[in-house]
């Protein structure tokens, strides 16, 4: 199984990359680590005329803390997030989610930016970024713009990025007394999620100041469970409040039956995982920082 022929460019600077995309963005596919794109090329589901390999661009990999934010470079590999020990207290949902992405070898090469731009509804990072209310920084020849996570994912394999744009960075707001959790049901290592739920909470005393909930594999894109998030704001994390949020999140899911299970099954797993995730996140937020 081999790809159909394509042309290939590997720009060495961001300026060169956006210049190529300005000219040929419509017929091009941008490749970061290639772990989502290359399988599609091999299956010939995707047959672009041009592959723009941004894997060699400098200064786009790594996670750093800056201006109250975490800045995750688009070319940061999953393994860099997974093995970053600082993140385990600073933003535990990130290494936890990274840990369950694909398999160890793919995590060595696949990137956070490539994964979110691929926008697979079964992808993990999208839900995490929705729960974290992250911002996506896109660059084109006309400049830089910021896209809210909630606006970024527009449908299956479709994002708000224009063909002439490249994602450079993801900005994640950091708050004190906050933490998250990622729960994923997969059939085996390397499988996409049957269902996964990202939960992030910010505590204010014994109350939840703010909650973020993202859902994986239960819609045509990663979903943000807004009603469930709102229901928690200002509430104590009692069993009742958590159960209500879980119920609302399950109601917001739009699962489809497939070989992994019925829609009812997936909806109920959303409920179970929101409950589990909230309990873990609250405990972590109280315990840490």
């Amino acid at each position: 199984m081999f790809p159909a022929a394509f042309d290939y460019r590997a720009p060495s600077s961001l300026a060169e990359a956006v210049d190529i995309l300005r000219q040929r963005g419509e017929e091009a596919k941008v490749m970061a680590g290639g772990q989502s794109l290359i399988p599609l090329l091999k299956l010939r589901f995707s047959q672009p005329a041009l592959v723009v390999d941004i894997g060699r661009l400098p200064n786009l990999a790594g996670v750093e803390r800056k201006d109250g934010h975490l800045r995750v470079g688009a070319l940061t590999r999953h393994v860099q997030v997974e093995s970053n020990t600082d993140l385990r207290t600073l933003c535990p949902i990130l290494p936890e989610a990274a840990h369950w992405i694909a398999d160890p070898l793919i995590r060595n090469q696949g990137t956070v930016g490539g994964s979110v731009c691929h926008a697979d509804p079964q992808g993990d990072w999208g839900s995490v970024m929705l729960a974290l209310d992250a911002d996506f920084v896109a660059r084109s020849e006309s400049g830089e713009r910021t896209i809210k996570a909630a606006d970024f994912f527009q449908g299956p394999f479709t994002t708000a990025l224009r063909p002439d744009e490249v994602l450079t960075e993801i900005r994640i707001p950091l708050a004190a007394h906050s933490a998250g959790a990622y729960n994923k049901l997969e059939r085996k290592v390397g499988d996409f999620a049957t269902v996964a739920v990202a939960v992030q909470v910010e505590m204010n005393g014994d109350k939840i100041a703010k909650a973020g909930i993202g859902l994986t594999s239960v819609g045509d894109r990663n979903l943000k469970a807004r009603d469930a998030e709102k229901s928690l704001a200002g509430k104590q994390p009692t069993d009742e409040a958590i159960a209500e949020a879980a119920r609302l999140a399950a109601a917001a899911a739009e699962p489809k039956a497939d070989v992994r299970g019925s829609a009812e099954f997936k909806r109920d797993i959303v409920r179970v995982f929101v409950q589990r995730g909230l309990k873990t996140a609250v405990a972590r937020a109280r315990g840490g920082q």
Partner: peptide, 22 residues
């Protein structure tokens, strides 16, 4: 489909799947 790892090589010392690299 990058599922089996029979093609694993080390790239600069790091294991990767050579069927999913150009």
């Amino acid at each position: 489909t990058s599922s089996c790892g029979a093609c694993t090589v080390l790239v600069d010392g790091t294991p990767m799947k050579s069927c999913t690299l150009l």
